[in-house]
Design a protein around this nucleic acid. Structure first.
Lengths: 94, 94
DNA sequence: TAATTTGGTTTATAAAATAAACTGTATTAC
DNA sequence: GTAATACAGTTTATTTTATAAACCAAATTA
């Protein structure tokens, strides 16, 4: 049986990736609202996605406020698509 | 964002449920082989699925050997289908 | 009859997810 | 002007989960 990518098989990380797959760029605040997660949890999970090379994270200032912008990378996109494939197979949705 | 049923959002439990959805009855040994899990892990996860009322577990003797037969219950079937729906929405598979 | 296999369960450990507490800057209220 | 609140996060601690390791009883094989 095919292993599901453990990095993606997490509620919050999967939700984040799903958003980024469709939106192509989103900031911390937006992701937090959309996923209704806590800031702490989101911060940790974004770090993990970043460490895996699945997303890019860019911190900038908008006026005087910090802004954390996330984008899915090519590697992340590929991993997500593979995950969906694996899941379909597992669930026999195909 | 819809919460994914945490009882099903686990690699091994999901695999077990997926098998039971298609096979309708399977014993411990079969599930162990199909999922390539360890006996300990499988035992624990089957307990959880049973405790949730998602599967029925029947222990019997075949000759002199014990046999643990699992079936998905109506509740389990429903939960699984709901989970797949939720996942599709989350992944925007449609 | 001693060692191994089968079919598991129980307990211990490792890894995750989540929450709580904290930081620094900015804004608002008095 | 300064005390209090809010914003945008990060870090650390706690809880929950998953997994692995150790164990058990009965049966089989050497």
């Amino acid at each position: 049986m095919k292993e599901l990518d453990p990095l993606l098989h997490s509620q919050l990380r999967l939700a984040v990736m799903s958003i980024l797959m469709n939106v192509d760029e989103a900031d911390f605040v937006y992701l937090k609202e959309k996923t209704s997660s806590t800031a702490g949890n989101l911060s940790v999970q974004l770090d993990k996605l970043f460490a895996a090379g699945y997303i890019s994270v860019e911190k900038s200032f908008v006026g005087k406020k910090t802004r954390t912008l996330c984008k899915v990378t090519a590697k992340g996109r590929e991993a997500f698509e593979q995950y969906v494939e694996d899941l379909k197979k597992l669930l026999k949705i195909s």
